[in-house]
Simulated scan of single mutants.
Amino acid sequence: MVRERIMMKKIDNATARQLTFSKRRRGLFKKAEELSVLCNAEIAVVVFSATGKLFEYSSSSRKMREDDIQGLNLEELHKLEKILEVGLSRVLQTKEERIMGEFATLKKEIDQLTEANMQLKKKMALVSQRKHSRVFSQSKDSIAEEGSVNITPPAPPSEATRADTSLKLGPPFSS
């Protein structure tokens, strides 16, 4: 029976992703143990899940738990400290690189959005300018068609409207 080759991409389904993580983690630890036994190598594997939970495997007498550290002498404690410092510095360096990469990506996106925003503002100004020029052009055309413009002031109010200038309070319509 031939196995299908699996595409290396993030598994979208969270349940399937967690199940795959558990199975592959056990397989990884088993392979590390086999490599240690077959090749007489010291192997340590540290895995963090997506939730931040720590899983570790160590083939040697290196102790990772507080209870086991009590039995180490000073030299072994210094060695363990150095190993942990190197590991921690690698983790911090990788973390910083990823943060800087994300920052650069976000900066590019901001620059692109800013440029797109400026282009849209230019287009809006152009459209607005065209509208105003059309209105001005239409009013010039209507003036040109009429030949001249007669501006007449509004007619003065009639006697009936002039007489009733008192202020009335209350609802606009009486029942």
Rank of each mutant, 00 (worst) to 15 (best):
Q119M: 14
P171C: 00
R162A: 08
S49G: 15
S61T: 09
G52A: 04
K108Y: 10
I110S: 09
K123F: 08
G71P: 01
I151N: 06
I151V: 14
V46K: 09
I99E: 15
A32T: 00
K122D: 13
S158D: 12
V149H: 04
P153Y: 03
K82E: 12
E115V: 02
G71D: 12
L106K: 14
G87S: 14
L74Q: 09
T15W: 00
R134V: 09
T105N: 13
H132P: 04
E102M: 12
S22T: 11
K95M: 13
I69N: 05
T152V: 10
V91K: 11
L120I: 07
Q138C: 05
T51I: 01
L126C: 06
D12M: 07
L169P: 02
K79C: 06
T51Y: 06
H78D: 12
R17D: 15
L54D: 04
M64V: 08
A32H: 05
S166C: 00
V135I: 11
V86M: 09
A104V: 04
E146D: 06
V37L: 13
L74M: 11
E42S: 09
K53F: 01
R26G: 10
L84R: 06
E34S: 13
L106A: 14
E102D: 15
M7Q: 11
G87E: 05
T161K: 10
L113I: 10
R130M: 11
E33K: 13
G147L: 05
L77M: 12
K63W: 01
A104E: 14
R26Q: 13
R17E: 15
G147M: 01
K123S: 14
E115Y: 12
A125P: 00
R130A: 13
H78K: 14
A144L: 08
F29E: 06
K107F: 01
I43Q: 03
I83P: 03
Q70F: 06
V135W: 00
I43P: 02
S61V: 01
L77C: 13
R162E: 08
E96Y: 08
E109S: 14
R90S: 13
T105R: 10
F21H: 00
K10C: 02
L80V: 02
E115Q: 11
F103Q: 13
H78S: 11
G101I: 01
S59T: 01
E34F: 07
A116T: 07
D141N: 10
L167K: 05
A104N: 15
A32G: 05
R24S: 11
V127T: 10
S58N: 13
T105Q: 10
E81M: 10
T20S: 09
V91E: 06
K10A: 12
Y57M: 02
L120D: 15
E56I: 07
D164F: 02
D164W: 01
P172Y: 03
N13F: 03
P154Y: 07
S60F: 03
V37C: 01
V46M: 12
L167M: 07
N117P: 02
K131N: 09
D12G: 07
G147H: 08
F55P: 03
L38Y: 08
N13T: 04
D12F: 02
K10Y: 09
